[in-house]
Design a protein around this nucleic acid. Structure first.
Lengths: 358, 358
DNA sequence: AAAAATTTTTTGATCGATCCAAATCCTCCC
DNA sequence: GGGAGGATTTGGATCGATCAAAAAATTTTT
């Protein structure tokens, strides 16, 4: 640790002023408006500051007067490492960073698992506004953030109280895009690898499961898939749907289930790229070729999807742009619309193709 | 944007106190020490707060009195997105996050490319201490951070002013480990893919280049390689060394250079995993097998090194643990030693093997 | 040399809370 | 009815700066 010369009593601006024989007002000006103080005095004050080991005006004091922190808060109920590990979060953060860099704003990450410190952290965060990541329908950060009465943007719709400003996508439309893409290749036997409908649940389900879902994104995606399938004349009641936890064990379980069915699917609809990539590994291990034997379409468009083998066809969200918009909305509130729906697009790569002739 | 009911004049604690007919002191207690105020009064004050739309005690005010921000600052001269993109940074941040989560501390990212806002951002960051990432020997953030007279830790030695507390590794020893590993496989023809010795330079160099290097990490790694090679009786003067920029074009250039030599290397020493992975792709494209035709050892031990094809043999730094230690040092200054040297280890995977018999 | 104009410095208020010692208010008891 | 003693409440000081208006010093004008 760098030893602090003045660990006992920090030097304040007033101390410097006294030492230099000027008023505190003048001392303040030396640091904040050097041009309006006479050079001779300026030098004297600076010398006094040096001699005392003054660290410069303390931002804590300055802040109170200025009112503005010049930092964006990003909140989530996940652990902080989420921001550095999760591919979706990382790309969005990258977009936020871009705006912060451009405007010179800081970035404060606020979080806590399971509300332990969450409330306090959000209440005491020194920021000008919040961007809230709502992972898996956990709205607690939204409530807490709103209490602060600062500008805030929620990433992801779902929490449909119109009074929020949110940035998100049309999940149902995206899901339809995915299903239509596979349908166009002639697939008729589908399987849906779903995200959770409710906190932590997983297992095979039917379409009814979506009804009371707390996670509206999952629900909407499912409805999108099924609607497209139904429109193509497929009996959706016989399409296997498996709720996964977006992790290896549950995705493997879902595939074990689907591929032990009498008529295993030739086309897989995955609600996240993560699920899709885990599935691809599983399929390859079982000696099934992608897309030769089984086609799969992911969701989100994370960078890894472009580099995995085979490259994953997916529904891409403009994550970076979402980050940018959110950051702009905080820095320049009032400008922003209440609700921004971002456009999505199907990125056709190699994981989906025609039905095998075999 | 969530519309603010009280955009014009924010409600202050004093307003609530007046509305509730109590003193500001009591009003403060209602929020900070609710247990010492009579229930009836407490309810009255809370009701008044609700009625006025009071957002709770403003952290800005509280901060000044409390003195402690409860947040760690992480500074670098790279753009903010560095924290979310760079594999090394990400793992370290993950370690820092762990400690923040455990203690409920916040995380403030501070940065700016090229000093534009850097100085101001560091001077005005509301944090209790700084962890400084020194990328590529850019010490500016160190100087600025030191001025704040807050606890701070530099990640990476090199800036050898003993008065700093730093966490780093023994680069020379690590480099020796890498070279010895290849030597043990019988390799005699080496090539060194170096990082920059000075800001932005690249091209083929000789060992002399290291003398005045600003980036001591690069220098030490080179010395480590050469010492190990010399100890094995290899004429180090004939070992090609190419300074790369840690990016695709310069790494390709370096390989073009080395493999057009009369006696191309069979063993490559790469100063970063990034360089090594780019090199592997280049080699594979040229039809050279790794490690069949050419062996390569990286440096750092980023997660990607474990999953690339073939998995990369590398010198692993305990990045996550470095992050943890840095965070602890900030939150609990005084405890920390001035300088902590982390241990490194060779992680033998598949990119290095015996010399080809061909 | 006095008046006017300009530059520089000082003084006092303010930002929004928390803390602390002193003042009140109660309740209970003799 | 007069304390004693504990529970509450109050008002002023404080945290560390910035800002605006007034005062002082300096320069320019007449």
């Amino acid at each position: 640790m760098a030893r602090q010369a003045t660990a006992i009593k920090p030097v304040r601006l007033a101390d410097v002023a006294k030492a230099a024989g000027v008023s505190h007002g003048t001392a303040s000006n030396v640091f904040s408006h050097p041009e309006i103080v006479r050079e001779e005095v300026r030098e004297r004050v600076k010398a006094a500051a040096d001699a005392l080991g003054y660290a410069g005006p303390d931002p804590k004091g300055r802040l109170l007067r200025a009112g503005k922190v010049n930092a964006i808060g990003v909140a989530t109920a996940e652990p902080l490492s989420y921001f550095f590990d999760d591919p979706f979060a990382r790309v969005v953060m990258s977009g936020i960073s871009e705006i912060c860099d451009a405007t010179g704003a800081g970035l404060s990450l606020v979080s806590a698992i399971n509300g332990e410190h969450l409330a306090w952290n959000i209440q005491s965060a020194l920021v000008d506004g919040f961007i809230v990541f709502c992972v898996e329908g956990n709205w607690q950060p939204v409530y807490l953030t709103r209490e602060r009465k600062l500008p805030f943007v929620v990433l992801d719709f779902g929490y449909d109280e119109g009074a929020l400003s949110a940035i998100g996508i049309d999940n149902k439309a995206g899901a339809k895009l995915a299903a239509d893409h596979l349908l166009a290749f002639g697939h008729r036997r589908f399987g849906v690898l779903a995200l959770s409908f409710d906190e932590g649940s997983s297992g095979p389900v039917t379409a009814l499961r979506a009804e009371g879902a707390t996670y509206s994104g999952t629900r909407d995606r499912l409805y999108g898939y099924l609607e497209a399938l139904a429109d193509a004349g497929i009996d959706t009641a016989s399409v296997p749907i498996y709720e996964t936890g977006n992790d290896v064990p549950t995705v493997h379980a879902s595939l074990d289930y689907m591929f032990s069915l009498p008529e295993p699917p030739t086309a897989l609809l995955a609600m996240s790229d993560g699920i899709a990539m885990i599935a691809i590994d599983w399929l390859k291990e079982r000696g099934l070729s992608v897309p030769g034997d089984v086609s799969i379409v992911g969701f989100d468009g994370v960078p890894e999807a472009a580099t995995c083998r085979p490259p994953l066809t997916t529904i891409a969200q403009p994550m970076r742009e979402m980050g940018r918009r959110a950051a702009r909305a905080i820095l320049d509130p009032g400008q922003a619309e209440r609700r921004q729906e971002m456009s999505i697009e199907l990125v056709a790569r190699e994981s989906a193709g025609p039905v095998s002739e075999r």
